[in-house]
Design a protein around this nucleic acid. Structure first.
Lengths: 209, 209
DNA sequence: TTCTAATTTGAACGATGTTCAGATAGGCAC
DNA sequence: GTGCCTATCTGAACATCGTTCAAATTAGAA
């Protein structure tokens, strides 16, 4: 068959279509948003027939799961890097800001990461599924700083509050809201930090009781 | 012409199809979940042809907007009721719990309320659009209790944190997560209250510092 | 080489969102 | 009543979607 070639005529057998499809999906996601992410469009972007993906993914949901997993991996890297750059309880703030910034910088991907789970009514793997998942990283950081949640319900609740708060802030941030506060505080990141400082166990600048 | 459409006027052929369609959509949402909410299914449920809705809504998104608005109205009622049942800063906790409980009790509707907005990348009307919107109700309650956010950036940030936190908790609650904590605290509502007490300006029930 | 299993394709099916010409029927002038 | 206007509703159509399947193609083992 003669077809438009990006890097040369593709042989009948692609080689690594699984990866190519996930990459194509991410490209589409970046360029056109989540609503443009149809199975056929992904196949088209990968230069392959609409039926080809079915030999690599059970259905569309499984393809989206794969894309979501890439997102969780990227988030994990971003959070790890942020954590490594700080020490003590400030690491928790760094993790929270990394989480919110990731959602802000990759809104379409972030959307897919949770949408895949919403369909199934179960928490995404990337949250609590394994030791590298996001919330587990938070818990580990707490423990490393002598705040073991499993030993203290109060701490556990603070951790949950911090997690929920960061997620809520990430969602609201994706709506591009609270612009006057961002401006007043000198940018998005200071705004994120200021909001997070009111949540759960994130260290507060001044705590009066 | 434009007549009151709440109760009274009987327009035409099929009755008030505008309302009938929204009702049918809510019925489908309740019975089959958000993924079953196609325009054609709604028309079918209302006993009408697939093209009929287009004389009452510009497109599917506008129908979903109408459904979402019903949801925001219901949430407003639930929050107002909760607020009226308490006094002082406890009203803020009541508002937060009402918000989270609404999301927990109407997961499909809650999903539609935000999905309609996610499509457009703008905050739903029901959050900040008018004086009866949810976040405005929170701000009003703050002001009534002598905590005017417009006078104090710190208070404003605490309000934003509380709002984001409640939203994040509502989302996580829809995933039916943190079951061991719920059990330990004696139910979902005590769990919600405990988490919220770690967020923003929600008063802490046990005044330990 | 020959055989086998894994990929890929093209065509097909049912369902979806949407449009459009035409049918239906209330409201109004006469 | 008769005629007309206009909003409403239908049926058929179109493009797209997710998915399945037999047939075509090719890689890799025998």
């Amino acid at each position: 068959m003669s077809e438009a070639k990006t890097i040369g005529p593709r042989p009948y057998h692609h080689g690594d279509l699984t990866r190519a499809l996930v990459d194509a999906a991410r490209r589409l996601l970046e360029a056109e948003g989540p609503s443009a992410l149809s199975l056929r469009a992904v196949a088209r972007e990968a230069g392959v027939s609409p039926a080809a993906p079915y030999h690599h993914f059970k259905d569309k949901a499984e393809l989206l799961d794969a894309v979501a997993n890439v997102g969780w991996d990227l988030l994990g890297v971003q959070m790890s890097t942020a954590k490594a750059a700080t020490t003590g309880m400030q690491q928790l703030t760094a993790l929270g800001i990394a989480y919110v910034c990731f959602a802000r910088e990759n809104p379409a991907l972030y959307h897919v990461m949770y949408d895949a789970a919403r369909e199934k009514d179960e928490m995404p793997e990337g949250v609590q599924g394994n030791k590298d998942s996001a919330y587990c990283m938070v818990r580990d950081t707490m423990i490393e700083n002598g705040a073991d949640p499993s030993q203290d319900t109060h701490l556990e609740l603070a951790g949950v509050a911090a997690w929920c708060g960061a997620h809520g802030l990430a969602e609201m941030a994706s709506f591009k809201q609270f612009d006057h506060l961002k401006e007043q505080l000198g940018g998005e990141v200071p705004f994120f930090e200021a909001v997070l400082s009111h949540m759960g166990l994130f260290p507060k600048p001044h705590h009066d009781c």
